[in-house]
Structure formats: structure tokens, C-alpha cells
Amino acid sequence: MRSHHRRAAQGVAALFILAAATALGQGSPVDEIAKYRAALQDGNPAELWEARGEDMWKQARGPKKASLERCDLGLGPGVVKGAYSELPKYFADADRVQDLETRLVWCMVTQQGYTEADAKKNPFGAGNDKKADMEALVAYVTSESRGIRMNVPQSHPKEQEAYRIGEKIFYYRGGPHDFGCATCHGDDGKRIRLQDLPNLTKVDGARKAYTTWPAYRVSQGELRSFQWRLNDCFRQQRFPELEFASDASIALTMFLARNANGAEFDAPAIKR
């Protein structure tokens, strides 16, 4: 009788400890990651890239010693405010649909006198010795669209064509793993290791994902552009490398950006 009581008492004590451990936090890993992200929000190092990019935008650079202050991102020469919320779009001067990075390359070639190869080299930074000017410029331009609703056009036939091609690429399966974007991003509740993956075929998922890129990646200590995001998705799918500023990358961006229309842009963000 006595020992029975004692055992019961021990059982109760053990239960209390369990309850206390749960109450003290230790929610699901996903909750913990959400808390971690919230804690990082206050001091986003992306601001360092924004500042560097703004400086670079105004500096006279390249063989023609010109700044980018006359660069037309779609809203007129030199207009940066809100420009990213309407990209990609068709540009008559280039006779092609361009996303932000492609347009920046265009301005660097036509106005600053860089060769296209020079403007396109080193699009993604790697530490102090290999800082990417492109990512800094992207950080600055996108930061000027924060709080503005996405409004990507589909009026020109080439814009519609880009959307259709982008959609096709999104659902296209191939490579050694018979993989496609939709394999990971076409269902709810999927994750890669502990990271939740957005369902890009639904309005909510598409909006949340697109409006939080570019982002500072804490694990890399770098600001990453949307071109980088697509490039790395292709690598993870074991696809051939997605060429920087290629038509395929622009088409896929058009598909994803257009699907985020109506959502408030909220980047450069911060991610784990």
C-alpha cells in the first residue's frame, strides 16, 4: 500500500516536470524559428547593403564616369521609388521584358559604358573579398518599394509570353531527380529540413514568398537577390545552372512576381 502510494506520487511529480518543461517554451521547432526571425527583425544588416547601394547608385562609375541617376527602371529616368513593385516589365528601348537585375545591367552598359560581361560578372557576393555591387544596388532599389503594393503588368504581349514561359518552367520536371519547382512549392505544409516551404500555387504563399525577397541570409552573412534565390533553387533541383539575367530567369520571376500582385512589398527582409 505504502509503496504503491509512493509510486503514484513519483508519477505525479514526473508529470509536473513535463508540464513545466512545456510551459517554459520549447514549442515546435517551427515556432522557435519564427521567434528567432522576430528577434532578428530589429537590426537587419540588409540596411548596410541598402546604404552601400544608394551610394553606388549616385557615384559616377564605369568608363563613361556616369552615375545611375538617369537609369529608367520603368517609371522614368532616375525614379527609384516604387519601381520594383512593377517589375519585371517590357522595356521598349531594350525590346525585351526585364527584371530589376537585367535592367540594372542594361543601364550599366548603356549609360556607364561597362561591357555586358563586366556588368554581369560577380552577381552574388561571397564575403569581404568578393562583395557584389549588384546585390547592393538591388538592396537599395527594392528598399524604395517597401510598403508599396505589387503591381506587375501583363499588358504587352511579351509580358504575357514571359508569364506563360515562367509558368511552364515552374511546373516542368526534369534533371537527375525528376524534380520541378512545383515538387516542393506546389503543396501546403512541405518543408526542407526544418524550413517551411511556401506553396507558390496559392495566392497567400506566392505573395508572402515574393514580397520577402531580397533578404539578408544570416547563415551566409550576405544579402541575397531574387536572381540568387532562383539560381540556388535550380542548384538544389540539380538542374543545369540558371544563367544570371537570362530569359528563363526573367520569365520565372515574371510568373512569381505577377502572382504576388496586390500584396504589400516588404523587403529587404531577414531570413535564417
Binding site: G43, N44, P45, L48, G127, N128, G221
Partner: peptide
């Protein structure tokens, strides 16, 4: 005061 520093 909130400070962001750029350092490796």
C-alpha cells in the same frame, strides 16, 4: 541607440 556594423 541602435547600431549596425559592417564587419567579417
Amino acid at each position: 541607440v541602435k547600431v549596425l556594423m559592417s564587419h567579417e
